[in-house]
Amino acid sequence: MSTSASATRARRATPATILHYWVAITVVAGMAFPLVWMLYSSLKTNQEIALTPLALPAAFRWQHYVEAWQLGNLGRLYLNSLLVTGVSVTALVMIASLAAYAFARLRFRGRDALFYLLLIGLLLPAQVVIIPLFFLLRDMGLLNTYWALILPYTSWPLALTIYLLRSYYLTLERELEDAARIDGAGLFQTYVFVMFPLVRPALATVVILNLVNLWNELLFALLFIQDEQLRTLPAGLLAFSGYYIVDYRLVFAALSITTVPILVVYFLFQRQVIAGLTTGALD
């Protein structure tokens, strides 16, 4: 790689530098363009989109956003997604951290066997259980309730989350923990007041990882919730795009409404989000 070597020469615009910029900008702009196209198409009329797909809008028709928001019941979808992912991620991380601490630091009979059992979950794609899971939830009377998503969403990422948090707990110094124990703190006190606060950096990472994955989850959401009022964003957006498939402006507006806020949050917390989404692959 010539980067570090040429850092000293960065001020001068050599032909190589210009070529480097030109190639990089072309590729990245090309990749980003579909999103830009989506944004400005959402402000055009259907006729404009059909006749001149590439042209910029003649006027900014923001009312498409109001229409899509109301017709697609997008407020409700957002609320459902916030609720389901919020509850799932909170429960998941609490439960996973507790278990990860035990697997990392406590000694008890059967610990390693149970940990390996849990690791099975790392290898399995969730698709392999959709059929029995559907009937399990049906028999529990939970289909078409938020629980039909919250329970699987809390359970399925446990293996990876515990695995990641456990490796972080293993890196922590033992001294604080030992000091708390000598001072007479019980196991739970030691965990809650000493260890849990220390694991916060790793917690942020796994929260982001699971937040993004669960926010975007489709398969469970599609199969376990049929009630339109309870749908999450991906399932609702898919239904909306099927229903208004030729009403381009509405689909583009709905797409923009559901993607732009996520992209804004991403660009605000870019470093943390990238760290969160690539964790596990990097260690």
């Binding site: 975007n216 964003l233 991906p234 996520i262 992209l263 991403y266 660009f267 989404l277």
Partner: peptide
């Protein structure tokens, strides 16, 4: 990297 945060559906 940004498409990574979008849903596959979108």
């Amino acid at each position: 990297f940004s498409p990574m945060v979008l849903s596959m559906v979108a």
